[in-house]
Simulated assay, not measured.
Amino acid sequence: MQDMDWSDLQVFLAIAQTGGLGRAGAALRVDATTVGRRLRRLEARVGANLFEQTREGQVLTDAGEALLLRVERMSRAAAEIGEGTQGRPAKVSGTLRISVAEGFGSWVLARHLPDFARAHPGLTVDLVANSGFLSMSKREADIAVMLSRPKAGPIIAGKLSDYALGLYASQTYLAAAGTPQRGADLLAGHSLIGYIPDLLYAPELRYLDEIHPGPTPRLRSSSINAQHQLIAGGAGIGVLPCFIGNADPSLSPVLPDKRIFRAFWMVTHKDTHQLARVQAGKDWIVAMIDRCRGLLLPRS
């Protein structure tokens, strides 16, 4: 980088953090034309396009992500020298996209996200919490919390925590239909709630047979939140993560000795896992998981 103008690299960093030439210019107090000119000069020296223009603004290319990692390191080092901040947490900005399972994202991550947002006011966080995961190999997300470790791809994965699941039903349903005392009782006239078999986005979601062989859900949904609403509404018995079932006072555990265990894995891309925003997100998720261990693995 010795042939590059540091001011051009600062312009590049501002565009990466704000996502637009105009916003970068406003942050640097220069006009967008100057920002664009400096970006073109830098791209000529690098020999590659650093951004792609999309409807949402400027999005980093692979070459841009690689350069951003180096420029962020330089920026942090300059800040430490100039301000004596060595050892303090670095300020992060830009957009951090986190892909998570719907239940974990809605019932655990989202409840703690405000603390992370307050700690990093310059960061925009996209929490993608739905039935399925974005592709880490294609870099559709910066961080993913998945139900299994990916078997291939340019990724880095580590186990976050085990978590427990169990059968739950509303007190209204149990008063009307009776409380099962053993797994075989689920086959005797009880209404079961579960996933749609051919729409499962992860094999780890196949768990009713672990309670007792043979039960077939009559009410099915691809959404764990919809299943929770069906169970809470008195429609039947279903499996929920304990961090959902135990959080709803209208629900009662059914066959509490029949617990199921799964695991959460945190996954990042090898090319971007060291970016400041990704490091900050990883550190927060690990710390949050430690605080929530009792919710994920409650005592029997």
Rank of each mutant, 00 (worst) to 15 (best):
D115P: 00
L109S: 03
P215R: 05
L208E: 03
K138D: 13
G245Q: 01
M136H: 12
R29C: 08
E65F: 14
D126E: 15
A280S: 13
D3C: 06
R218L: 13
N49L: 09
A117S: 14
V100N: 03
G87C: 02
E210T: 06
V100P: 00
L68W: 06
M4S: 13
A263T: 15
A129C: 03
H269S: 08
D290H: 11
G94P: 03
G166K: 07
N246Y: 03
G84R: 03
S131P: 03
V108H: 01
V59M: 06
V278L: 10
T268H: 08
V145L: 09
V71N: 03
F51I: 07
L109F: 12
R291P: 13
P256I: 09
C292D: 11
Y207N: 13
G57D: 10
K138T: 13
L200E: 12
L113T: 05
V100S: 01
S137V: 15
V59P: 00
L275F: 11
K258L: 10
H190L: 00
G166C: 10
L208N: 05
L187K: 13
R262M: 05
L113M: 09
L208G: 07
T272C: 15
M266P: 00
R38C: 05
D142N: 05
G236P: 06
R293V: 10
D209Q: 10
Q274K: 15
